[in-house]
Simulated assay, not measured.
Amino acid sequence: MPNRSSTARTADDLASRVADDLPEIADPLAVSTADARTLSVILFRRLRSLQEGTPAYSYVRNTLVELNLSLVKYAATRFRRSGESWEDVLQVGTVGLIKAINRFDPERGCEFMSFALPTVLGEIRRHLRDTGWSVHVPRRLQELRLDLAKANDALEQELGRPPTDAQLRARLHVSEAELREGRIAANGFVSRSLDVPVDDEDGGPGLLARRLGADDAAFEKIENLETLKPLVAALCARDRTILALRFGEELTQSEIGERLGLSQMHVSRLLSRILGGLRTALTADRPDRPGVQR
């Protein structure tokens, strides 16, 4: 019975003989897309002549996988916003690529990349459907959510506008209650933080946070104005006039002095006293009316 080392040597010899019949591929990952297509045709023809499970078959198939990994990366970019890690999506897509390689028949005249892309995308979608739900949702509703999304897109393209509920129900052959269940189920697919931006370039609050609302700074301003009304009303006539000239007509202290027959220095002291009194009253727990001084 051959030992393990002799078995390994036999496998290496088989792989070497297979490689002798093929173009030399030093680094399959560095091959251009155009060259990968050409080499894949040759490798698939060779794969058809080999027995599945043999070292030679594994060698050729692994080379095909490496040559076409760019297809997996292309498919995976469609799911960047899925919330799943990039490495996991690539791994699942590679499983789909291997399935496509196992089923591909070069004699049918179809290009491998066109044949493999739906398989890779389908494998990733099934993975996300089964693992991407934030809350437990029955498989029936998971599939209904997918059918609802597909039907909505198809009808919108046909009609040139979003479809009505009646049109969706007719396309899917479901009742009004089932349609409502499918929409509710979509809410359990992905949960996101309220702070997640709407898109990568958006530095503002998340979409959900915007919908829920936020504190409006104008409310504090309105509250302050309402609190000031009785405080200003308690001032003497001259103080109210000074405030009106300064903040209503936006006159300078010199212009106010000329209007009232006071010096600019006197107006400055009066304004400081009035504003200081109002500020103290606003910040106090129980604001007292500012004293009236002349």
Score class of each variant (00 low, 15 high):
Thr33Tyr: 01
Thr33Glu: 08
Thr33Leu: 02
Ala34Asp: 09
Ala34Gly: 05
Ala34Tyr: 00
Asp35Thr: 11
Asp35Tyr: 04
Asp35Lys: 03
Ala36Glu: 15
Ala36Val: 13
Ala36Asp: 09
Arg37Cys: 01
Arg37Val: 02
Leu39Trp: 12
Leu39Phe: 12
Ser40Leu: 07
Val41His: 01
Val41Met: 08
Ile42Thr: 06
Ile42Asp: 03
Phe44Val: 05
Phe44Leu: 10
Phe44His: 14
Arg45Asn: 12
Arg45Asp: 10
Arg46Pro: 06
Leu47Ile: 11
Arg48Asn: 12
Arg48Trp: 02
Ser49Lys: 14
Leu50Glu: 06
Glu52Tyr: 04
Glu52Gly: 14
Glu52Leu: 03
Gly53Cys: 00
Gly53Arg: 01
Pro55Arg: 11
Ala56Ile: 03
Tyr57Leu: 02
Tyr57Pro: 01
Tyr57Glu: 05
Tyr59Gly: 05
Val60Arg: 02
Val60Leu: 09
Asn62His: 11
Asn62Val: 02
Asn62Tyr: 00
Thr63His: 04
Leu64Glu: 03
Leu64Asp: 01
Val65Pro: 12
Val65Gly: 06
Glu66His: 13
Glu66Tyr: 08
Leu67Met: 08
Leu67Arg: 01
Leu67Pro: 06
Asn68Ser: 07
Asn68Asp: 00
Asn68Val: 11
Leu69Gly: 10
Leu69Arg: 15
Val72Pro: 05
Lys73Met: 08
Lys73Glu: 06
Tyr74Cys: 03
Ala75Pro: 05
Ala76Gln: 05
Thr77Tyr: 11
Thr77Pro: 00
Thr77Met: 11
Thr77Ser: 14
Arg78Trp: 13
Phe79Asp: 09
Arg81Gly: 12
Gly83Cys: 14
Glu84Met: 14
Glu84Val: 11
Glu84Tyr: 10
Ser85Val: 10
Ser85Tyr: 15
Ser85Cys: 04
Trp86Glu: 13
Glu87Asn: 13
Glu87Leu: 10
Glu87Ile: 07
Asp88Ala: 15
Asp88Leu: 15
Asp88Gln: 15
Leu90Asp: 03
Val92Pro: 02
Val92Trp: 07
Gly93Lys: 06
Thr94Glu: 10
Thr94Val: 04
Val95Cys: 01
Gly96Ser: 06
Gly96Lys: 00
Leu97Val: 04
Leu97Met: 04
Lys99Ile: 02
Lys99Arg: 11
Ala100Gln: 09
Ala100Lys: 10
Ala100Met: 05
Ile101Glu: 01
Ile101Trp: 01
Ile101Phe: 06
Asn102His: 09
Asn102Thr: 13
Arg103His: 10
Phe104His: 05
Phe104Ser: 04
Phe104Met: 08
Phe104Arg: 02
Asp105Met: 08
Asp105Gly: 11
